[in-house]
Amino acid sequence: MNIFRFAGDMTHLISVLVLLLKIYATKSCSGISLKTQELYALVFLSRYLDLFTNYISLYNTLMKLVFIGSSLAIVWCMRMHHAVKRSYDKEVDTFRHYYLVLACFVLATLVNEQFTLREVCWAFSIYLEAVAILPQLVLLQRSGNVDNLTGQYVFFLGAYRAFYILNWIYRYFTEQYFTRWIACIAGIVQTALYADFFYYYFISWKNNAKLQLPA
């Protein structure tokens, strides 16, 4: 563990807490893409298959349980909770995310560390996480103005993988064998997808104005 990865995990945790706060406090999921939440639930379920078989540390196990539990709880809320699901705007959340799942699965069968179920699922989860934010970004551009909590959720979600890139650079220079190319390249793509969001987020912060994404 290094400070960059710990900062990344805490930033990721904050993004989840901000989203839970938004849904719980406002009893609304307006501006949130259910498809991105479903993709993230799939990312965690397919990445943490070895949750009970491959114990690394209490921290690792706890964080995995938090990410799996919160992502499933958010999907459940947006699909089942009577008040929250009413605020879900499925006419705007129209990204065909099943194509993302299929493309990532095909890529994972071709590019992986070992052609085993565990490694193919792990590579699948890494590729899927890189593109999971697309439905959410498309929804934000369609819905124009973004409420504060939703903007902060997306910001922290994007920032966490940027910390992981610093972690991979650190591990590259401090460890003998660097075997994290799949996660590293996918992480760079993932962070790059947030580039324009980060730009408009910074502008809104600098001008102390509402976050506006150009349609």
């Binding site: 990445r47 491959n54 690792n60 964080m63 070992q114 490694e119 792990w122 994290r180 996660a183």
Partner: peptide, 10 residues
Amino acid sequence: PIGQPMHDEL
């Protein structure tokens, strides 16, 4: 386990 990639990151 030796030989299997260790995914110690979240």
